[in-house]
């Protein structure tokens, strides 16, 4: 009984990681063809591709674990990504929020990449070998995402009055969604905060100490934005079940 509980928890954790990467990756992919400069358009597209690739690895692993739990279960990575509805998604609210302007997208990427960096480092000690392999692989990519987004937070924050002002609004807007990132793993909060403070200091921002923190993503209680995202992302499989090309 205990073993089956552990497996269930394991599946939920892997699905949570998969959902985070997929939804964040999908959001960033919305910038494809719309970036402010070609190089930055390519950068975001590359990051989106890394995240969607990570999501695939997690979904494949989750499908394997689901089959271990019940050998009649033959769900695939595609079923998990394309055929679940919003309440079944367990991603953080932060990743489903609309991109808004460039600064807001950068800040969201920065908060999320820093969380991924420290969380995946902690996964390296997992007993699940496949999870360790995915984390190890992803960390190499995430190191680039953290660096690229940090540089942009600093460039915009310490830039012109207008870029600073837009970034400041993004900080106010997104900060209340950061509490959820470390709510279940308080030991990561300090590392995450230190990295954010280090970059914020250079970018001339301060952290919002007393903000109200939204939560619910991990319980499947989402903002209204997720449904619209899924409607677009899942359209093809919903309209033409089993379609391939």
């Amino acid at each position: 009984m205990e073993q089956s509980n552990n497996l269930q928890e394991q599946i939920e954790m892997v699905m949570h990681l998969a959902d985070n990467s997929l939804i964040m990756g999908h959001r960033l992919s919305e910038w494809t063809g719309h970036g402010p400069a070609l190089e930055q358009d390519i950068a975001l597209t590359n990051i989106a591709l890394d995240l969607i690739g990570q999501a695939r690895l997690f979904y494949q692993h989750a499908a394997h674990l689901l089959q271990m739990q019940d050998d009649k279960n033959c769900l695939t990575e595609d079923d998990l990504a394309y055929l679940r509805d919003a309440p079944e998604f367990k991603n953080f609210l932060l990743v489903e929020l609309p991109n808004n302007d460039w600064g807001n997208t950068i800040l969201k990427t920065f908060f999320f990449s820093c969380w991924q960096y420290f969380y995946y480092k902690s996964l390296l000690n997992s007993a699940d070998e496949q999870l360790v392999a995915i984390a190890e692989k992803s960390l190499k990519e995430i190191a680039y995402h953290v660096r690229w987004s940090s540089e942009w937070v600093i460039r915009l924050g310490d830039g012109t009055p207008e870029s600073h002002d837009k970034m400041q609004h993004a900080v106010w807007r997104l900060w209340p969604y950061t509490g959820e990132l470390t709510a279940d793993k308080p030991e990561l909060l300090e590392c995450w905060r230190q990295k954010v403070i280090e970059v914020f200091t250079e970018a001339t921002f301060s952290t919002e100490e007393k903000a109200y923190m939204h939560k619910g993503g991990k319980q499947g209680i989402h903002t209204e934005h997720l449904g619209y995202l899924l409607a677009e992302m899942q359209f093809l499989q919903r309209a033409y079940p089993g379609c391939t090309w």
Binding site: I42, A43, N46, Y144, R147, W148
Partner: peptide
């Protein structure tokens, strides 16, 4: 360096 992300995931410009 022009951009640390290039034409494919494995390249920089």
């Amino acid at each position: 360096l022009v951009s640390e992300f290039g034409s494919t995931a494995c390249k920089a410009l």
